[in-house]
Amino acid sequence: MQTTLMIYDGTAPADSGVPRTGGVPLAPAGFTWPICGSSCGGPLQFFAHLPVEDGVLSVFVCQNDPGACESWDATSGANRVYLFPREELQPVEAPATGVTLLPATSAIRTHVVTLDPAEDDDHDELAPDAYDLARSGWKREPEERFGKQREVLGSLGGSPSYLEDDRLPACPACTDTMEFAAHLEEGISAQSAMNLGGRLGYVFVCRACREGAFLTD
């Protein structure tokens, strides 16, 4: 069982092309900063820049009035996910008002964890979850009870951790069920944290239509 974890790798320039949370989005020319369609009408906050095989996932979530706009719902309009091509991306200037940028930029490196779920003694009652096992076991020494989970900023690919099938979002263009793309954790510190309400974030994509979706659980 393999899981590609996203691991905190220090700080990065705000406009870096490396995988990161925070900083400024890189987008094609003419890109317009997304606005919350839930209730506040303000600009969304940029969360993450995630290069993937066929482009770059750019994640935005409303933070202007946490709890009022339904940022946890994939269809609320309070979040947006874009799948940009890799070529000719440029930094986007944030709007002058609203909660638009995280205080710190966190670089991400990937690390593939291979685990045998049969060797885990903490998940006897439930079927082993690949992401949960990989995250809880990250950098765990044989004599340690806990690993360094705060270093884990999420994962790429795989399957959505413990998410019910009825919450898998449908593509607004073709109506097919979207493909799971990434987990997002809040972050390693208060300065770099994405506000997910203490929950796990899920990023989905329809690669055929280049549409994305975000939700928390």
Results as ranks from 00 to 15, higher is better:
M1R: 12
M1W: 13
M1N: 05
Q2R: 12
T3P: 06
T4W: 07
M6K: 14
I7Y: 09
I7F: 08
D9P: 07
D9N: 15
D9V: 07
T11Y: 01
A12L: 04
P13Y: 00
A14Q: 13
G17T: 14
G17Q: 13
P19A: 15
R20D: 09
G22T: 07
V24N: 01
P25S: 01
T32D: 09
C36T: 11
G37M: 08
S38A: 15
S39G: 10
S39F: 10
S39A: 14
G41W: 00
G42F: 15
P43H: 07
L44R: 10
Q45W: 02
Q45D: 07
F46K: 02
H49S: 11
H49V: 12
L50I: 01
V56I: 04
F60D: 03
Q63K: 14
N64P: 08
G67H: 13
A68E: 13
S71E: 10
W72E: 10
D73F: 02
S76N: 09
G77I: 04
A78D: 15
N79V: 14
R80F: 00
L83A: 03
L83W: 10
F84Q: 09
E88V: 03
Q90E: 08
P91Q: 09
P91G: 08
V92Y: 04
A94F: 11
A94K: 12
A94C: 04
A94I: 11
A96Y: 01
T97D: 08
T97W: 00
T100L: 14
L101K: 04
P103S: 03
P103I: 08
A104H: 03
S106H: 06
A107C: 04
H111Y: 03
V112T: 14
T114N: 09
L115M: 02
D116K: 14
P117N: 00
A118N: 11
A118K: 13
D120K: 11
H123D: 03
D124C: 03
D124F: 07
A127Q: 03
P128E: 07
A130H: 12
A130N: 11
D132P: 00
D132A: 13
L133W: 09
A134G: 10
S136D: 12
W138G: 10
R140K: 13
P142A: 12
E143Q: 10
E144W: 12
Q149V: 15
V152L: 03
L156W: 02
G158C: 00
A170V: 02
A170I: 00
C171L: 05
P172K: 08
A173D: 08
A173S: 11
D176C: 08
D176S: 12
L184W: 01
E186G: 02
G187W: 10
G187P: 12
I188A: 14
S189D: 05
S192C: 06
L196D: 15
L196R: 13
G197H: 05
R199S: 05
L200W: 01
F204Y: 07
A208E: 10
C209K: 12
F214G: 01
F214I: 02
T216V: 05
D217H: 06
